[in-house]
């Protein structure tokens, strides 16, 4: 009894001694509790029959019924399929692209040229998807887009790129590569800059040409960076681009472009089915969490590398 009291006293003393730091942390911790943990608690409505206008509490419990409904819902299956396909294409094309850019940039000898290219290719990252949407309209619009103007002036038929299901996924993949690849190359450039020059010197003495240096020195040396970023990318496979899709999506292409995020927005906020769309959101969060933990464990086992 006595010891408990003293340890309590010493804890109080400890906190009082460090009161400034604890005081500093009060607001941020409150922020996380209110704006992150209350919504996490709010996930409970996925297991309830939520009545609009109520709060998280006092609704009828229906267990996993919503999750059964999810997998019977055709629009959800379609959105899930689109999400996975689009993410898959984005990884296949978009993941290697910044690595290629970094490798190419690294081979440039003129510092001025390198700087100018970097200045140009980083810029699109800093504009919003709405602006990128404006650019795509100006380039591809059926009425007066640049591409169709050129086709018309050559006497060819104009093509509807923005609302044709055939092109829409490619449009998503390419526009994201256009916007983000330059920026993503930074991290690889840094990794390449960290490679020991002596390895290159040795390779050159062994008669390695530029291509062989890339293949046998640079790539193996940055393999760890690549695998860490790959893990992170896999973890977000169920995010196929919320703002991007919402800006570009139109009814003509929603069958190929609707993804889980835009589906949650549409069903939840537009149509007002809170419980169902929260269940969809929980499904997404849970799968994402399992993926990132799983792939992290895998990489720990395989290479001794982990992101945590």
């Amino acid at each position: 009894m006595h010891t408990v009291k003293t340890s309590k006293n010493s804890l109080v003393k400890y906190i009082w001694k460090n009161r400034f730091i604890y005081l500093i942390l009060v607001l941020p911790l409150l922020y996380y509790i209110i704006f992150h943990y209350i919504p996490i608690y709010g996930i409970l409505i996925a297991f309830q029959n939520y009545v609009p206008g109520r709060s998280f509490i006092g609704n009828e419990w229906i267990g996993f019924k919503n999750f059964g409904l999810i997998f019977k819902s055709k629009p959800f299956i379609e959105a899930l399929r689109n999400t996975i396909l689009i993410s898959f294409y984005k990884i296949i094309w978009g993941f290697p692209f910044p690595i290629v850019i970094a490798l190419l940039l690294n081979e440039v000898r003129s510092v001025k040229f390198k700087r100018s290219v970097q200045t140009a290719i980083y810029f699109p990252h800093f504009v919003s998807w709405v602006i990128v949407g404006g650019i795509l309209v100006s380039l591809f619009s059926i009425n007066d887009g640049l591409v169709n103007e050129i086709l018309k002036s050559m006497g060819l038929k104009s093509i509807n790129i923005l609302s044709n299901p055939k092109y829409f996924r490619s449009l998503l993949v390419l526009s994201e590569m256009w916007k983000e690849a330059g920026m993503q190359s930074i991290i690889y450039l840094a990794a390449i800059a960290g490679v020991d020059v002596q390895i290159y010197e040795a390779a050159i003495i062994d008669g390695a040409n530029r291509w062989q240096q890339i293949r046998y020195v640079t790539l193996p040396e940055i393999a760890n960076t690549i695998s860490i970023l790959f893990i992170l990318r896999i973890g977000s496979i169920l995010s196929a681009g919320m703002e991007q899709t919402l800006v570009l999506l139109n009814p003509l292409v929603s069958s190929v472009g609707e993804n889980i995020d835009t589906f949650v927005y549409k069903v939840g906020l537009v149509q007002g089915d809170y419980s169902f769309s929260t269940a969809v959101g929980l499904f997404k969060s849970a799968v994402g969490y399992i993926l990132i933990i799983g792939s992290n464990c895998l990489s720990k086992k395989l290479k001794g590398e982990s992101i945590f």
Partner: peptide
């Protein structure tokens, strides 16, 4: 840990909106 956890797991759109 409490803070980093929120990087990997979120309540999602609807609970945030309701909040």
């Amino acid at each position: 840990n409490m803070i980093v956890f929120t990087m990997y797991f979120q309540g999602g759109l609807i609970p945030s909106y309701m909040l």
